[in-house]
Structure formats: structure tokens, C-alpha cells
């Protein structure tokens, strides 16, 4: 029996920058977690993941990361995804410095 599907965003690293990207509802890849499309069912998420895996010239390592909806768009569930969405805690580099990170 497979585990119950948790609402998830589809994320990867950008091939050129290495930066974290998220699939949006319009099919584009955004740098902001809040822009991400929150998949509610496993089938649609699985299809989107397979499609992302077929874009090796843009993306590295796409995967589904559980998230929850919030007033500013989806929010990470796990703290690791929180750091990916924000940047490191010792310097203000990464998304937090680029206005890509919403509280």
C-alpha cells in the first residue's frame, strides 16, 4: 500500500544558477516558493514530475516536496524546504536577498 499523498509543490534546481525553482500553475518555473502550484492529487503531481524529468537541459533533480497552503501561497512543511525557499541563515544571500521569499 502506498503512502497517502501529501499536497506538494514540484521543485528542482536551475541548471545554470543552481538556484531553487518551483513549477507554477501557468507551467513556468518561478524562484519563489509562494508562486508554486500546490498539487492536491498524486496523479497530476506524478505527471508534472515526469514532464520535469524530461527537461534535462533546464532543470536538475526535480522532486515533489510537501507544502501547505498559506495566505501568500504555498509554504514549505519541512525545515529543509524552508532553507531552500529562503537561503542560508548566516548571510542574507539567496532568495531572501532577492525578494523571492515571503514571510
Amino acid at each position: 500500500m502506498s503512502r497517502a499523498f501529501l499536497p506538494s509543490v514540484l521543485t528542482a534546481n536551475d541548471l545554470f544558477e543552481g538556484d531553487v525553482v518551483y513549477l507554477t500553475a501557468s507551467g513556468h518555473w518561478s524562484r519563489a516558493h509562494g508562486d508554486a502550484l500546490l498539487f492536491q492529487d498524486a496523479a497530476a503531481a506524478g505527471e508534472a514530475l515526469a514532464a520535469a524529468q524530461a527537461q534535462p537541459a533546464r532543470l536538475v533533480g526535480p522532486y515533489l516536496a510537501p507544502a501547505q497552503s498559506g495566505p501568500q501561497g504555498p509554504r514549505p512543511v519541512h525545515f529543509r524546504e524552508g532553507f531552500r525557499a529562503r537561503g542560508p541563515s548566516n548571510y542574507r544571500y539567496g532568495k531572501q536577498a532577492q525578494g523571492m521569499c515571503r514571510p
Binding site: E17, G18, D19, P56, V60, G61, F83, G87, Y93, G94
Partner: peptide
């Protein structure tokens, strides 16, 4: 790799042999 001639699976061992990792936020 950039042209798409190499997949990530093919490129990864080559970049690692040259010290290039992909971490959480960047290379």
C-alpha cells in the same frame, strides 16, 4: 551539458571529478 548533449546523470560524475557540487541554493 548546457546544449543538452549530456544529461545530468552523465554530467554529474564529470563535474564531481572536478570538484563541482550542486548544493541547496547553488553550485
Amino acid at each position: 551539458r548546457i546544449s543538452g548533449a549530456l544529461t545530468e546523470d552523465e554530467f554529474k560524475p564529470l563535474r564531481l571529478m572536478n570538484g563541482l557540487y550542486l548544493q541547496l541554493h547553488a553550485y
